[in-house]
Design a protein around this nucleic acid. Structure first.
Lengths: 215, 215
DNA sequence: GCTTTTCCTGACCGTATGGTCAAGAAAAGA
DNA sequence: TCTTTTCTTGACCATACGGTCAGGAAAAGC
């Protein structure tokens, strides 16, 4: 019991407050956009005075930058499974599952990213040109290899990737529209399963993915 | 010659200025979001003094509302072809073509819509609940009919529609990302053709669309 | 020509926002 | 214990924004 009353160390305080602020900021940026978000709103949601935000993050833009960076790194991780897979059924299937899960659990992040890109990426253009470019080239190589090995039809790997991004992120970015068309109710567990299955089934069949013989 | 120097009538002036303002507003709202857009920016882009904007559109929100409404009506038109088609190959193929063309020619509108929905549709929620809901139900009926007639696989029509929206609008909403990944150059005519073909081919094959016998 | 209506616009106003600062509280270091 | 460093925060500031308004210009109506 006594241990839990030990005063927080400096490092703990900093880590905890930064996390609190970043989480609040992600929500507010997602709901209001960069221009519509205010430091006061973020402060209220984090339960801290506004001046305290400026102590940890000197400007609104620096706070926003860190939010976007965290999202981007999160997405890159989701694609690790891609490379190790023996073929498109396993690799793309798992990738779709992973990205759908992010859309479900982390919709605010997806919205912030979409907003940033739609506004011509003023903050993360360098990421697009370096990290994302390399990542995309690498994944296209994997797809081309699968095609060469006869594991799927010879589709354009670039547009396949765009379709994967578009379709999976749609469930986060347009979640409000989907909810409205669902009678005002959020998608149930069963509906999420159906969504994943629909997406996977149409895309995998659409590219003529053939299950690995040694799967 | 003399005719072209006739002073503009009141109706002409109004129509012309409103059009000028709406076009400028669409661009600015698309690039900066509702919160980031300023009446001054829109005025500058339209080449009019700010006070003149408030003469035609009393508030920023009323201007925004009209921009979003125009976009929505534009999209509804694009789906007329859907109903008349004998089957999914013609109907969905033409719909994909039409929406891809809008993404190419009218990307700002798509971005404004995306932004509005991402921010929980504060301005057009009623449209979602009425017009869009009815439109969606009607199109799902068409798809179900095609399925019943054996013209395509029994896929979930709802998620098929979401995939169509997501994929086609992605080329507008994420156009900047696509351009960056394309070496910083906008997609060429040939690349647009390839994009359309990729999307159509994967989706139509993915749903097992069978060409109409009497096509 | 005279009156009415519509259009135009520079100057102005209240407010909200991002950001600053000084002074104190609390932990760390010696 | 005394000093140093880090953290906290109410009060404050300059600016930019949405919106107003009065007074004039220009068509329309008669």
């Amino acid at each position: 019991m006594t241990a839990s009353y030990r005063p927080l160390s400096r490092k703990d305080i900093r880590r905890e407050n930064e996390k609190l602020i970043l989480e609040a900021a992600e929500k507010v940026f997602a709901e209001a956009g960069f221009g519509g978000a205010t430091m006061q709103l973020i402060a209220d949601m984090a339960g801290l005075p506004k001046a305290n935000l400026h102590y940890y993050f000197p400007t609104k833009e620096s706070l926003y930058r860190q939010v976007v960076q965290a999202i981007f790194l999160d997405w890159l991780k989701a694609a690790d499974i891609f490379d190790a897979a023996p073929g498109p059924v396993e690799g793309l299937g798992a990738y779709i599952d992973a990205k759908m899960e992010i859309s479900r659990r982390h919709p605010a992040g997806s919205k912030v990213w979409a907003s940033e890109v739609m506004h011509r990426a003023p903050v993360i253009q360098d990421y697009l040109e370096t990290t994302l470019m390399e990542w995309t080239e690498g994944r296209m190589d994997v797809i081309r290899r699968w095609i060469a090995e006869g594991k799927m039809d010879p589709v354009d790997p670039r547009h396949l990737l765009y379709m994967l991004w578009a379709t999976t992120q749609h469930y986060a970015d347009f979640g409000h529209q989907i909810e409205t068309l669902n009678g005002g109710r959020p998608m149930s567990d069963a509906q999420w399963v159906a969504a994943k299955e629909s997406v996977k089934s149409i895309i995998l069949k659409g590219i003529g993915a053939r299950p690995s013989p040694d799967g």
